[in-house]
Every structure is written in structure tokens, then in C-alpha cells.
Design a binder for these strands. Structure first.
Length: 553
RNA sequence: GCUCCCGUGGUGAAACGGAUAUCAUAUCUGCCUUCGAAGCAGCAGUUCCAGGUUCGAAUCCUGGCGGGAGCACCA
């Protein structure tokens, strides 16, 4: 890798000047005109010695010029002492050749080879709506899963569904009082009436938990099956295939036992409930078993960590949830560090922001939720309007791309105020823009084939000329593997999004300026190879985002 | 009240402590007899406030102001 070569060369140069440090960084300058890589080594050296950074830059460059690293065409100094590296024409042409050769494997790495990683996400609750908040969790979790997978980890996608607990009791209570209501509506009714009918609903909760009433069991089973079937259809549309489902019903008894066994050690009794005193860690107290002896979310989550590990002995367990439970999770992890220290150390909590409505917080309790299904349908309608020959499959692929892009373009953890016209765009900075560019690139390749332009090969370089001018597209293409690794280590799919958007933009500029497929142009074979490399990176990158490239648009 | 998160052009966002803060959108101006106009080119416009640390701060620290979430038997 070029980056390592540069880092080694700089370290060597510093060493020969008597500076021993690994503190400097080698990065891409924000502005492409500043070169392809840049280092702050001179500033670091200046700091260590208390002297001028421009002078250090001059000395370092003299050293670097003695053994110029492969692939570097020019080194210069700018600003307060940045050393900028401009890579050579040959370097970029070789990378284009490499991308075409490696194809769908381009961008993958071995950083997690031999590791077992589990990712839990989406987590909709049976008996409640699958709303756009779950869409956020799904988009982020799926993308993280794919980043992990692309880094060669053995990856398991799992989903944890709350099929027991107060929300179920509320939904069943609502359904019993208004049988024609949908499950989402039934839940809202139960939630709104809870204050008035607390005793009723609490006792219903206990019956559900104990499965002691035949009629209630039948209604429960029916509701669970019906809502889960809806979720399955959505997973298919979203492109997620879970390897395993965990349910709260299996976690509950395990959690109860874990907590009971540790009463007096980790947990303590308080007002008939069993609690964990988080205060000693600067946190707050949370109830793990309620006064009826029923395990709460916290106890079940503790059990879940163990159930997961028993099923798949992970090295890392990533849990994607909404940020509203950040505080709970900190308490939970504090308790887990005492009960299962080795599992707590392997658990990584990623929280996503809330999808809010302009009118305020969306709440399934109040019933003012936008369901995932209605959103997808609405977006599909808008996509169809733009299509010349409507096609159901493509309309869906484009709609999902628009939705996922709007979620993944920003750092997970930040809220999105959902406004239809502002949040979902088909133009510029959007999922469809990336798809469109990929489709367009492929169509140019078709044209090249039809015109019988010969195939360019990087090793022989005999079948056509390489244009002297390096395009912006080429300066971006070779960075893709770095972007993938960075996005993984920082749990930041938005870096892939922003990279792809820049790449697509550069290609569209290239496309507008140059005729690519032209049998009479000796540079056409190379330009087609560049087009193929772009199409490949766009497709590989979109895969990481869970977005499909349509056959046409 | 306490704890945590967040304040970037009109709007939505990006930016391992790095260079002239990037991108999109909306508005405005051009470009389809040439490989797909869901596109391209151009104009204009931004780091909440006050201190501090640093060669260098949107980023780190302190204090304000503003917004959000959570704070005992819901998840």
C-alpha cells in the first residue's frame, strides 16, 4: 500500500535527521490540488526541537528525495510546513488496472480475519408498528454488518424482538377492547388507557408472562405471528437476512435467574424490587426485577448477552439501538461488567438518533408514527412519476436507495427531523444520484462494446494510450479501500456515502467533458477501463450501504 | 434539579487538532441533432457567545446561551 510506503519513508527521513517519533500523520489533503497525500511531519519535528517548521520541511524533503518512494512523482512544501506528495501517472493507471482485475473484491480487507462479529439491529417489537425509527436502525446495522463482512470477519446478523413485556400487555388489552383495531392502534389504545387501568393491564401482563390463560394465549400467538410476518416482508425489501432471532420470552427466565443468583452481590432488594445501584459508577439506579418478580428490559438484556454468546462465541458484539436508551445502556454495561466481565468487554453499543417529525417526537404510544411500509410506498410513488417506463422492482430499489442514503449520509447518533420533501431527494447528494451514475457508467461500457473498442490492460499497456492528464476520478478511485477500513474502525458508514458522492460527481464531470467510447480515439480503451473501475467501486460501495444498482433507471 | 448528547451558509449535512471549512439543496445564469439532463458548468452565501490550551481549534478545556434525550418497577 502506498500509504505505508510513504509513512516508512518519512519515518526513515526523520530518523536520519535525528528525530525518533511516530507522531506524524499521513493523510489526504482536503483539497485535491494540494496533492494526493500530505504529512505534518515537519511540524511534529519542529515541536520536538523548538525550531522552525518550514526549515524542517526543507530538510525532510531533501532526505525523501534521496530515495523517492515508488509511485511518487513530486514532493513539495506548502503553508506552515506541510509536505505534499503528488503521485505519478503510472501509479493511477496501475490502480485502474488493478480495480478492473480485482472487480467485486476491490475494497475488501483482512483487518478482521479470523474474528467472529455479531451485529444486532432493527429490533422491532411484535404487537407494535415497524416505524421509520426501525428503518434507521436497520440501515445503519445492515451497513455496519457489511463493513464487518468486507473486513473478512465471520459475521452474524441478529434481531432481538420484544415479544413479552408491558407493551404486549397494552396491545392485547387494546385488542380485547377494540377487536377491529390494528395491532399498532391496539397498542396506542392500551398505552393511553394505562394510567386509568393500571391494575387490569398489570395483571394481564403477568398472565401473558406465565401463559396461564388459554384465551389470552391464543390472542397472543395470533398477534405475534401476524406482526412478525409483516416484519419478514420488510426485511426482504430492505435487503437484510438475519441469521438468528432472539426473543424476550427466552431471555426473560434466563435474566431472572442471573439477577436472582447475584442478589446481595451485584444487585440488591429495594421496595420489593431488585435493583442495581448505578450510583457507585456515577450512574443511576435501575430496576432489574420488578416488584412482581418479572424481569425488566435490563435483566433480559443481560441474559441476551449470554444467549448470544452461547449461540455464537463472538469476539465483538455490536448492538445498534436508538440513543434514547444510552443512559440505560451505560447502567446495563456497568452491571454486565460485574456479572459477565468478559462479555461486557466485547460489547460495543452504537446508538442512532431519533427520527423526529416536524411536529415533535414520534411516539407509538400516541399513535402518531409513520410506518416503514407507508413511507416506502410514498417514496415509490414519487419514483414512479419520474420513470419513463415504470417498473416495480426498479421503483423499489430506487426508493430504498433514497431512504437509506438519507439515513446513512450523516453520522449515526444524530437525530433526523423527517420532512418528506427535504429528507428524501432524488437529485444531487442522494441515493438515486449514485445509482444513476453507476447505471450510466455501465451503459457507456455497453456502448464501448458495441463500438468494438479494444480492452485496455495495465500490464501490457499496448492497446491504447493513457491520457497525460490525471482525472479527479482516478485520484479518488484508489482511496476506496482506505475509506472502507476507516468507515469500519470508526463505525461511520457516512464516510462511504460521502466518498461515493464525490466519486460519482467527478465521474459525471469527466463524462460531460469527454467522449469515452470512441473507436477512433486511441485513448478510448483507457477511458473505458476508468469507467469500468468507477462502475465497480460505485457498485462495491453501494453494496456496503445496502443499496442495489438497478439495471436501468 | 441532576446526567448524557447536540448547536456549521436560508435549509439538510461533512470535516484522525491541520492549509483558503467541504458537499448538496433552494434561488439566480447557461448547456440536450454528440456515450442516459435523476446530469454538467457558473454566481452568491456559514463554524451560538465569552475566555483558555496549541505553531495551528468547528474539533480539546472552563463558563454562559439555545435545543434534545434520560432520570425506579415500559422497552
Amino acid at each position: 500500500m502506498i500509504r505505508e510506503r510513504l509513512t516508512d519513508a518519512i519515518a526513515k527521513a526523520l530518523k536520519s535527521l535525528g528525530i525518533e517519533t511516530g507522531e506524524f500523520v499521513v493523510e489526504h489533503p482536503a483539497d485535491l490540488s494540494h496533492g494526493d497525500y500530505s504529512t505534518n511531519a515537519a511540524m511534529v519535528a519542529a515541536k520536538a526541537t523548538g525550531s522552525n517548521s518550514r526549515e524542517w520541511a526543507n530538510k525532510i524533503v531533501v532526505e525523501l528525495e534521496k530515495h523517492k518512494p515508488d509511485g511518487v512523482a513530486r514532493i513539495d512544501i506548502a503553508g506552515p510546513g506541510f509536505i505534499n506528495f503528488h503521485l505519478s501517472r503510472e501509479f493511477f493507471a496501475e490502480r485502474v488496472g488493478e480495480i478492473v482485475r480485482v472487480s467485486s473484491a476491490y475494497g475488501k480487507n483482512d483487518s478482521l480475519k479470523g474474528q467472529k462479529v455479531m451485529v444486532e439491529y432493527t429490533d422491532p417489537n411484535p404487537f407494535k408498528e415497524f416505524h421509520i425509527g426501525h428503518l434507521m436502525s436497520n440501515a445503519i446495522g445492515e451497513s455496519l454488518s457489511r463493513l464487518v463482512e468486507a473486513s473478512s470477519a465471520e459475521t452474524k446478523r441478529v434481531c432481538y424482538q420484544g415479544d413479552v413485556g408491558m407493551h404486549v400487555a397494552k396491545a392485547l388489552w387494546g385488542k380485547m377492547h377494540k377487536p377491529n383495531a390494528s395491532w399498532g392502534e391496539a397498542y396506542a389504545i392500551g398505552a393511553q388507557e394505562y394510567d386509568k387501568r393500571k391494575e387490569d393491564i398489570d395483571s394481564l401482563n403477568k398472565k401473558i408472562y406465565e401463559r396461564s390463560d388459554k384465551n389470552i394465549n391464543a390472542l397472543y400467538d395470533e398477534g405475534k405471528q401476524a406482526t412478525l410476518a409483516v416484519f419478514e416482508n420488510l426485511y426482504a425489501v430492505l435487503g437484510t437476512t438475519f441469521d438468528h432471532y432472539f426473543f424476550e420470552t427466552e431471555a426473560a427466565p434466563v435474566g431472572k435467574k442471573i439477577v436472582e443468583d447475584a442478589v446481595g452481590k451485584v444487585f440488591e432488594e429495594s421496595n420489593d424490587a431488585v435493583v442495581f445501584k448505578g450510583e457507585k459508577y456515577g450512574l443511576h439506579t435501575r430496576v432489574f426485577l420488578n416488584s412482581q418478580g418479572i424481569p425488566t428490559y435490563e435483566a433480559k438484556e443481560l441474559a441476551l448477552a449470554k444467549l448470544k454468546y452461547d449461540w455464537f462465541p463472538y469476539d465483538t458484539s455490536i448492538v445498534v439501538t436508538g440513543n434514547e436508551i444510552n443512559e440505560y445502556f451505560r447502567v446495563l454495561l456497568a452491571a454486565m461488567r460485574e456479572v459477565f466481565p468478559e462479555l461486557a468487554a466485547k460489547t460495543k453499543h452504537i446508538s442512532h438518533g431519533m427520527l423526529r417529525l416536524p411536529s415533535g417526537k414520534m411516539s407509538s404510544r400516541k399513535g402518531n408514527v409513520i410506518t416503514a411500509l407507508s413511507l416506502i410506498e410514498e417514496v415509490k410513488d414519487r419514483v414512479r412519476e419520474k420513470m419513463e417506463e415504470p417498473d416495480e422492482t426498479i421503483a423499489e430499489q430506487v426508493a430504498i436507495a433514497a431512504i437509506k442514503y438519507s439515513i446513512l449520509k450523516q453520522a449515526p447518533g444524530k437525530d433526523i427531523t423527517f420532512d418528506f420533501d427535504k429528507s428524501l431527494s432524488f437529485e444531487g447528494d442522494s441515493g438515486p444520484y449514485l445509482q444513476y451514475t453507476a447505471v450510466r457508467a455501465r451503459s457507456v461500457l455497453e456502448k464501448g462494446k458495441a463500438e468494438q473498442v479494444p480492452t485496455w490492460e495495465s500490464d501490457s499497456q499496448v492497446k491504447g494510450e493513457v491520457p497525460e492528464q490525471v482525472t479527479e476520478t482516478e485520484r479518488l478511485l484508489y482511496r476506496f479501500p482506505e475509506v472502507v477500513e476507516e468507515a469500519l474502525t470508526m463505525y461511520a458508514p457516512q464516510q462511504v456515502v460521502h466518498y461515493l458522492t464525490a466519486l460519482a460527481g467527478s465521474f459525471n464531470t469527466f463524462y460531460a467533458k469527454e467522449k469515452i467510447a470512441d473507436a477512433k480515439d486511441p485513448r478510448s480503451p483507457y477511458k473505458l477501463a476508468l469507467t469500468r473501475a468507477t462502475a465497480t467501486v460505485l457498485a462495491n460501495g453501494l453494496w456496503l450501504l445496502g443499496i442495489v444498482v438497478p439495471t436501468k433507471m
